[in-house]
């Protein structure tokens, strides 16, 4: 439980900090809104147009299973996996549930640092720390931070990143 790759020649340790416990609710509500809408739409089509019923059985079953997994399993699983750390040299985070991922971005390559708060996050007092590098795929998103902690991290990172010269590509 101490490292992701258990018996590698070298392995990587987990980031030090965990996300807020409230993030569980955020993941749950998010899944409910997205996949719940899809399920509701499919059910309405099923109810209104009988002609489409033979085609909708498999999609309905699949959507229901996905929704159940996303509200029962995903939030808790993600809470166990998601961790983060901002050191002087790099930002490091682990994310995901079915597909787990760890990312490291060097501070010297940071282009922007944002704290983003969507409507659900505002409701729960959470914030997402988003660190982007010059690569369009290279952004690190750390969901489920307390908004004060995220703001503090933004200030700290922005101050360090400013010291680096060049256009960071």
């Amino acid at each position: 439980m101490n490292s992701i790759s258990r018996d590698g020649i070298t392995s990587i340790r987990l980031p030090q900090l965990r996300v807020e416990r409230r993030a569980v609710w955020w993941w749950l509500l998010r899944s409910l809104l997205s996949w719940g809408t899809v399920l509701a739409a499919l059910l309405s089509v099923y109810a209104i147009w009988p002609g489409t019923r033979p085609w909708l059985v498999v999609p309905l079953v699949v959507t229901t299973l996905v929704l159940l997994a996303k509200i029962i399993v995903e939030p808790w699983w993600r809470y166990r996996v998601h961790r983060w750390e901002v050191s002087a040299n790099a930002t490091y985070a682990t994310t995901g549930w079915v597909v787990r991922e760890w990312r490291v971005a060097p501070t010297s390559r940071i282009q922007t640092v944002d704290a983003v708060r969507g409507p659900l996050e505002q409701l729960l007092g959470l914030s997402t720390l988003r660190v982007t590098t010059a690569s369009s795929y290279g952004a690190i998103k750390i969901n489920g931070l307390d908004h004060r902690i995220a703001d503090e991290a933004v200030t700290r990172l922005a101050a360090v990143a400013e010291l680096t010269e060049g256009d960071a590509t």
Partner: peptide
Amino acid sequence: SSDEAVSLASQFAPRLVDEFTLAS
């Protein structure tokens, strides 16, 4: 192979990953 993943990452970007790696 997963065993190789961290060592590959630390090969092409040594200064970056080393801070977080553990000796096996």
